[in-house]
């Protein structure tokens, strides 16, 4: 641990990131350019989130790291270890006990509370990128609030499929001003972005952008009056904990087409099972899980 500064990054880098975070907080939904550093893990694997987390951590923190909602996926394990090694912080899998949560692709099911920080790993921060590849152009669009293109795209979906065919990384409009990419979370999670008591920070390392949603900020999923936004999920209950309203992973259980659905949020699922909830294929909690 003595080989590195607290939380790995040098102080000047942390100051630069902290200044960017504060500007992001002051301009909700706006992507602040920052001089992302080359981290000892590959771009695209959470370098932005890691830098934001490193800039936020204090020794007293309890850190939770999830990937796809799960604490034990290999990349989550790797990032959690990185901070245990370089910052010596305590770690937890319990959402309610964590002070800082770094996530990839999910917002935990357990509602967050004041004093918590949720750090998202973001691959492509620009919500307009797939409509217009040029940064020089999309920056202009944000400046002029020219969001017609994205509405046209959503509308074309409706014309072709009868509904909006965007199921994750579903764009939101923040405080009536900036259109923002919430990172590739399923649109099921979008409603949790808005009016959340926690601070939400978004870090895109390779693309060198940080943005933020302060607590209790409005974030409206783009839609049309006759095609309102719907937060959808697999139409099942969790087969382990019987939760009806949590986001589900589909697991293929044999080569005959059998499948089961389980909570993608492993902490949520385990807590429910510990509390005695048993799903279709579950078994009463025995403490071995």
């Amino acid at each position: 641990m003595n080989d590195y500064n607290f939380a790995y990054l040098d102080e000047q880098t942390k100051r630069m990131i902290r200044r960017a975070i504060l500007k992001g907080i002051a301009i909700p939904g706006y992507q602040v350019p920052f001089a992302s550093r080359e981290m000892p893990m590959p771009y695209g694997w959470g370098t932005g989130g890691v830098q934001v987390t490193a800039a936020c951590l204090v020794p007293e923190d309890r850190l939770k790291v999830i990937d796809q909602g799960a604490d034990d996926t290999t990349n989550a394990v790797s990032i959690r270890r990185f901070f245990q090694r370089t910052a010596g912080v305590a770690v937890t899998e319990a959402t309610a006990e964590a002070t800082v949560i770094q996530t990839r692709h999910r917002i935990p099911e357990t509602p967050l509370s004041e004093g918590q920080i949720l750090v998202y790993q973001v691959p492509i921060p620009e919500p307009l990128r797939f409509l217009e590849p040029r940064e020089t152009e999309t920056r202009k669009m944000h400046e002029l609030e020219e969001y017609g293109l994205i509405h046209v795209k959503l509308y074309e979906d409706i014309a072709r499929h009868g509904q909006i065919a965007t199921s994750y990384a579903y764009p939101v409009k923040v405080e009536g001003r900036y259109v923002m990419d919430p990172s590739p979370i399923p649109k099921f999670d979008n409603p949790k972005l808005a009016d959340n008591p926690a601070i939400q920070l978004f870090g895109a390392g390779r693309e060198q952008r940080i943005y933020a949603l302060p607590p209790h900020t409005s974030a409206v999923s783009l839609d049309f009056e006759d095609h309102p936004f719907v937060a959808s999920k697999a139409d099942h209950a969790c087969d382990l904990c019987a939760a009806e309203a949590s986001y589900l992973d589909e697991v293929i259980t044999d080569d005959q087409g059998s499948r089961m659905f389980v909570c993608s949020d492993t902490d949520f699922c385990q807590s429910r099972r510990a509390a005695g909830h048993v799903g279709r294929l579950g078994h009463p909690a025995t403490g071995d899980q």
Binding site: P42, Y43, G44, W45, T47, D67, Q68, G69, T73, N75, R104, H105, R106, P123, H161, G162, Q163, A165, S167, Y168, A169, P184, I185, P186, K187, F188, R206, S232, K233, A234, Y247, L248, D249, E250, S264
Partner: peptide
């Protein structure tokens, strides 16, 4: 290379969202 290779990381969640959507469509 980082971004290219990151697509081998788990994407269960977004893929599930796409799966549900395609089934529905």
């Amino acid at each position: 290379t980082g971004f290219l290779e990151h697509i081998k990381l788990p994407h269960y969640v977004d893929f599930q969202a796409e799966l549900e959507l395609v089934r529905k469509l």
